[in-house]
């Protein structure tokens, strides 16, 4: 049985991973593979190894890794092969394949035009930064850490 792992960087901003989860959900709903999981390199869980374990638990026999990266930088060319080598040692019967990075694709032009159609005043975007506090992990690396919407600050205040 085929599984897809969406391989992503992760973020220090609380809640930023929700978008990657939403992309995975869209892929799941497409029915392209019975299993779609997300594995992060840094900051965010689940890790890549945890994502592989979830696929194996669901009886995957082949895992295709889709890098959620624009270009094949060091995370894709160095870290990912290391993670896969480790996963192969732990799960020798599973077949692994790696898909190409986002790179160049005609659909990117459509995505850009779709974004442009929904363009709104720039300040509307900065207002959404405050929403991150709803998923606060109290991580000092978060750009909101210690700000008036960070849970740490709110707890001190109360």
């Amino acid at each position: 049985m085929d599984a897809i792992i969406l391989f992503s960087h992760g973020s220090v901003l609380c809640g930023a991973e929700r978008n990657v989860m939403a992309v995975a959900q869209r892929m799941r709903e497409s029915g392209a593979a019975p299993i779609v999981e997300v594995g992060f390199v840094n900051y965010t869980e689940p890790t890549f190894a945890a994502a592989v374990a979830r696929c194996v638990e669901q009886m995957a026999t082949r895992i295709v890794i889709a890098p959620y990266f624009l270009v094949a930088g060091k995370f894709v060319t160095r870290e990912l092969p290391g993670e896969i080598a480790q996963a192969r040692r732990e799960h020798p019967s599973i077949e692994f394949a790696v898909a190409a990075v986002i790179g160049f694709h005609e659909l990117l032009a459509d995505a850009i035009l779709s974004s442009a159609e929904g363009a709104r005043p720039p300040a509307a975007h900065s207002a959404t930064l405050r929403e991150a506090s709803a998923w606060c992990r109290e991580d000092p690396k978060c750009p909101l850490y210690g700000s008036d919407v960070c849970r740490v600050k709110l707890r001190v205040a109360t």
């Binding site: 969406l6 990657v20 892929m27 363009a119 005043p121 720039p122």
Partner: peptide, 17 residues
């Protein structure tokens, strides 16, 4: 005006598939 980042656009999931 400023749009959403392209990761939010549905075409990205189609591209990855």
């Amino acid at each position: 005006a400023m749009g959403d980042y392209i990761g939010q656009e549905p075409q990205i999931a189609a591209l990855l598939l």
